[in-house]
């Protein structure tokens, strides 16, 4: 009887875990964690590309998970930051936008996905601002949507703060304007609790570092 109770409890616990964290595939979450370690240890563009390949391999198997495609896009964003070639930047970010679309198709109305999309669109604009002003509108639209979906997502404010920080004052940017946005990012990071260990939880340090430069 005791054993039976135990077994039933165990089964119940397992079921509840399953429904809570939807993807309790431990192999999957462990793989994502390994990938996040690769990202954390990345030192240059090549490392981000390797991590990107890694997430892509997971995405190819886990066709119902948005997270691997999200991180692939994230790695491509950073691979683009780490190259001086405008052509490569464009290619990495174009690929990232495709990956973001893939993630979006798997997880509709996800604030994190729209936030990253907004960041990518802004960077696409920055490659050739004069002829790509329309990306500005796309980026603003994506970030607005991210806010509407979850106003407490701190990464939106980090991305907005970054965009403002690096936009010349004459065009409505600058440190002064970026400061309050980054302050709210830092405040929101302080109380942010990720859904689980593999969902997006990046940016707190960048927000602090950038805010420090506003003073």
């Amino acid at each position: 009887m005791k054993n039976l109770t135990k077994s039933i409890t165990l089964i119940l616990v397992l079921i509840s875990l399953n429904s809570f964290a939807q993807n309790v595939n431990p192999k999957f979450s462990q793989a994502i964690k390994t990938g996040l370690d690769m990202v954390a240890a990345a030192k240059g563009g090549e490392d981000y590309l390797k991590a990107e390949n890694y997430f892509e391999r997971i995405a190819a198997v886990e066709t119902k998970e948005w997270i691997p495609s999200y991180y692939s896009a994230y790695c491509n964003l950073y691979a683009g930051y780490n190259t001086a070639s405008k052509e490569l930047k464009d290619q990495y970010w174009d690929k990232a936008l495709q990956e973001i679309d893939k993630a979006n198709a798997l997880s509709a109305n996800n604030s994190e996905i729209y936030a990253l999309k907004g960041a990518l669109e802004f960077m696409k604009m920055s490659v050739d601002p004069r002829s790509r002003m329309y990306f500005m509108g796309n980026s603003a639209e994506s970030l607005e949507k991210a806010i509407a979906l979850n106003p407490e997502n701190p990464r939106i404010y980090l991305i907005k703060g970054q965009d403002t920080f690096y936009t010349p004052e004459a065009f409505g940017g600058g440190k002064e304007k970026a400061k309050p946005i980054l302050e709210s990012a830092v405040a929101k990071f302080a109380i942010f609790k990720p859904v689980n260990t593999i969902e997006p939880n990046w940016g707190a340090e960048s927000a602090k570092a950038l805010l420090a430069q506003c003073k």
């Binding site: 793989a31 090549e46 590309l49 390797k50 390949n53 890694y54 391999r57 997971i58 190819a60 198997v61």
Partner: peptide
């Protein structure tokens, strides 16, 4: 070809090519 993605279908296994 550097930074190419080498993978095994239906598995996480694989790697990237070096320079």
């Amino acid at each position: 070809v550097a930074n190419a993605n080498i993978s095994l279908k239906n598995s996480y296994d694989g790697t990237s090519t070096d320079s």
